[in-house]
Design a protein around this nucleic acid. Structure first.
Length: 269
DNA sequence: ATGGTTGCGTAGCAA
């Protein structure tokens, strides 16, 4: 089973590039982030006519996640547990029925968290957007632990808005005070990983120079000034089945690209 | 370097 995560930065803007990538890359399941659309406005029929099951969890203007699948989906749930008042659409789950077995997939769009407010001691404050990010990550940790406890294959796929280590940025010094790379952000990410997850990409490819996002601004793509923030975390039963993982970096150089590129895994499932 | 670029939605925010 080939499973990918792709922050498309708006379904309307990617109405040509996304089907083109799906046709070329031939994934079985895709977690999409930043659909920037309400469910009713998502071009469901276009993808259904191409053979995809479509499950969306959208909102007006911002955020929004979805799952496209050629394989059967069961028990779809929307929203990250832990705060019924949270209006932001950033989490969707489904059970994917593979040929050799099922897995539980969570598609996620973790809050960016900028701008960060700093206290007089120079440490970041857990207020505003950064506070929301850290709170959201604590909720995600609880949900991730619950999913692990099922002892079924689990994949947490999405835009984490986390640069896990300095080697995951072309210019780490430019991100040192940013919500994507602050020590508190990285520690919250590690607390989730350390529950027992494997970063699929790092299980396959060591070393610097591998990115999944290049800003539209200041020629970041042309300078290869990128960061690796789109991740697939595998529970142990999914990690056992990992055959390969890659980043489709070429997608960033095509017509009207997203600022993110797809990251994919091949699982023996 | 306080710019730069894109998307949504049609102003200004988010990234």
């Amino acid at each position: 089973m080939k499973l990918a995560t792709f922050n498309i930065n708006g379904i309307k803007a990617r109405i040509e590039a996304l089907p083109r990538w799906l046709d070329a890359a031939r994934p079985d399941v895709v977690a999409l982030q930043e659909i920037k659309s309400v469910d009713e406005a998502f071009p469901r029929a276009l993808f259904e006519d191409l053979g995809w099951r479509v499950e969306t969890h959208g909102q007006k203007g911002f955020n929004g996640v979805a799952i496209l699948s050629r394989l059967p989906l069961e028990d779809v749930t929307r929203g990250l547990p832990g705060d019924d008042e949270d209006p932001q659409a950033r989490w969707i789950e489904a059970t994917v029925i593979g040929e050799k077995g099922a897995l539980r997939l969570a598609g996620l769009y973790l809050p960016n968290g900028n701008p960060v407010e700093f206290g007089a001691d120079g440490r970041p404050l857990a207020t505003g957007k950064y506070g929301y990010k850290l709170n959201w990550m604590a909720r995600m940790q609880a949900r991730a632990a619950a999913l692990l406890a099922t002892e079924e294959p689990v994949v947490l796929a999405g835009d984490y808005n986390i640069i896990p280590q300095d080697e995951d940025a072309a210019r780490p010094e430019a991100w040192a005070q940013d919500a994507l790379a602050l020590p508190e952000s990285r520690a919250a990410f590690r607390r989730i990983v350390n529950l027992g997850f494997t970063d699929a990409f790092r299980a396959r490819v060591p070393g610097p120079g591998h990115y999944s996002f290049w800003d539209y601004q200041a020629g970041a793509w042309e300078k290869n000034n990128g960061i690796r923030i789109d991740h697939l975390l595998l529970g142990p039963q999914a990690a056992d089945r990992l055959r390969d993982c890659g980043i489709d970096r070429a997608a960033r150089g095509e017509d009207k690209p997203s600022d993110h590129v797809p990251v994919w895994i091949d699982l023996d499932l």
